[in-house]
Design a protein around this nucleic acid. Structure first.
Length: 261
DNA sequence: ATGGCTAGGCCCCCTAGA
């Protein structure tokens, strides 16, 4: 089955692009980020008409995540990441589906950007990453298939950004951010894209500004992180780059993995 | 030589994104 992640940068602005991509790629599960609407504003019917079950954790104006699944959800999907009851930003949604080869847990993640690094946004990002690591450590104890899919706002390595020197002090690439990402990976997760492709400059985001798309000045910041059980079933992982070049695009493009499930 | 965008809100200018 195909599990995808896409930061759509507003579900309402991007609905035509989303519907055409769902019909082309036919993902079994699609994790969306930055839907930028409350639950009631989500265009649920148009997506259900394509055969998807829809789970939404929305918020007015900012953030917001969703999970689309051809298979029904086993239990009501769980919003929010444990560890901070005062966190009101809609950045996490987790669901479980049953396949004939076992259960699959999927999370849609919109990890905080963290810029500027001298603002309160940066410690919020780092604390959020600590919470994600703690939660992932708990999930690993089930020894099941899971995929943590989303916009991590983390450039893992120098080969994942067009000009790494310019990003040294940015919240997406600075030492503290990448150390937190490494701590998460060192639990035993697999970066699905890097497990399938070691070429540099394979991006998932291109800024709307400064002709970034035309010059291929991109970042690889959207990731599918797999549990060991899911990694054993990984067949391929790809980035749907042409979607970024379409009319009224998101600044992110979809990434997806195929698992033998 | 420079600066070049997009989306939402209650909206003609601001915040936010990365």
């Amino acid at each position: 089955m195909i599990i995808a992640s896409w930061n759509v940068n507003s579900i309402k602005a991007r609905l035509p692009r989303l519907l055409e991509w769902l019909e082309e790629r036919k993902p079994d599960i699609a994790c969306l980020q930055e839907i930028k609407t409350v639950d009631e504003g989500f265009p649920r019917a148009a997506i259900e008409d394509l055969g998807y079950n829809v789970a939404v954790h929305g918020q007015k104006t900012y953030n917001g995540v969703a999970i689309l699944s051809r298979l029904p959800f086993d239990e009501p999907p769980e919003a929010r990441l444990p560890g901070d009851d005062s966190d009101s930003q809609a950045r996490y949604l987790e669901a479980v589906v049953s396949t004939d080869k076992g259960a699959l847990r999927v999370a849609s993640i919109y990890l905080p950007n963290g810029n500027p690094v001298d603002s309160e946004k940066f410690p919020y990002k780092l604390a959020w990453m600590d919470r994600l690591r703690d939660h992932a450590a708990g999930l690993l104890r089930y020894e099941e298939n899971f995929v943590l899919a989303g916009d991590y706002n983390i450039i893992p390595d120098a080969g994942d950004v067009y000009n790494p020197k310019a990003w040294t002090d940015d919240a997406l690439y600075c030492r503290a951010s990448r150390e937190k990402f490494q701590a998460l990976m060192h639990l035993g997760l697999t970066d699905a894209f890097r497990a399938c492709n070691d070429a540099p400059d394979q991006y998932t985001f291109w800024d709307y500004q400064r002709g970034a798309w035309a010059k291929d000045h991109g970042l690889r910041i959207d990731h599918l992180l797999l549990s060991p059980q899911a990694a054993d079933r990984l067949k391929t992982c790809r980035i749907d780059k042409p979607v970024r070049g379409r009319e009224r695009p998101s600044d992110h493009t979809p990434i997806w993995a195929e698992l033998a499930l």
